[in-house]
Design a protein around this nucleic acid. Structure first.
Length: 278
DNA sequence: AGGTGGACCCGAACGC
DNA sequence: TGCGTTCGGGTCCACC
């Protein structure tokens, strides 16, 4: 659900609301959110600090705080922010945290399934934390066909499993993995390490293209995902295979098939996406 | 060592 | 209609 394009959309909307603001009051309503840190300890360290900016790395939101602190937010499946200019009600049963800003604005963090996480990292901890978890940014200069080729080399896992591994490349989830593999005409079960240089080059291009389109469309709103102003994305209208079992492949008309790969629902065109060994 | 599958969570969709 | 069951999805972790 929130994958790179959705998180980037949230980042872009959050940045102007938060940059330069001071966090006056922070109420963490669900202790799961900051686990294993006690919620009161985290809110005490957040209160009174100014926000320097809001960045994104993979699917993580990085809220930079004065004094080299970083609030690292992962929305997982259903996390979302909702901003109101005044201290309007807003906090329903799924609110997990409420932040009051020094301009009178209020930010409510909601998360129906409670998988999302807030981690407050201090000086020097951020790079180590992200470094062991994330590969290159797919839209940054470090993500080239050669880089992807070396990340996939020798791996026997299905290429889809490798794409879902955030250390291969950061920010791809189930939806954009299926879309990128369709665009690159690769079967999700193809062994990652056995793709040819041309396959990998097509895949790298396809990844960048589906993610850029996702950002242009402000993400995909299937159920829960919303931007902080409540707006929906429209990327779901651009899906070629994801969730479209039985519909004709936009390239060849063959009905889209549904399979299970790496434990995930997987949609593909059985004609244009070449099966392994075929 | 690298890959796989279950746990976590809960609303929605599904099946009888 | 109403109830119980299954599904999904990102990441971590135990297991193979």
């Amino acid at each position: 659900m929130p994958e790179l394009p959705e998180v980037e959309t949230v980042r872009a909307r959050l940045e102007p609301l938060l940059a330069g603001r001071r966090l006056e009051r922070v109420a963490i309503l669900d202790p799961r959110l900051t686990r294993p840190e006690p919620p009161d300890a985290v809110s005490a360290r957040l209160e009174g600090r100014r926000v320097d900016g809001v960045r994104r790395r993979g699917k993580y939101l990085v809220i930079d705080l004065e004094g080299d602190g970083h609030l690292l937010v992962h929305l997982r499946m259903t996390g979302s922010f909702r901003h109101t200019a005044g201290s309007a009600p807003g906090a329903d049963g799924h609110a997990r945290a409420v932040v009051e800003l020094d301009d009178g604005g209020r930010l409510v963090y909601r998360d129906v399934r409670r998988f999302g996480t807030w981690s407050l990292l201090e000086r020097g901890e951020l790079d180590a934390y992200l470094g062991v978890r994330l590969g290159p940014e797919p839209l940054g200069p470090g993500f080239t066909a050669a880089a992807l080729r070396s990340a996939l080399a020798g791996r026997r896992a299905p290429v889809k499993a490798a794409l879902l591994d955030q250390r291969t490349v950061a920010g791809i989830g189930n939806i954009y993995a299926d879309e990128a593999l369709w665009l690159a005409r690769l079967h999700p079960l193809a062994a990652a390490g056995e793709l040819g240089p041309g396959d990998v080059a097509r895949l790298a291009r396809a990844i960048r293209r589906v993610l850029r389109t996702g950002i242009d469309r402000h993400g995909a709103t299937l159920r829960d995902y919303r931007a902080p102003d409540g707006a929906s994305g429209s990327m779901q209208e651009e899906f070629r295979v994801y969730g479209r079992g039985g519909a004709p492949c936009p390239r060849c008309g063959t009905p889209i098939a549904k399979a299970r790969v790496a434990g995930r629902g997987t949609w593909l065109c059985p004609t244009c996406q070449v099966a392994p060994g075929a």
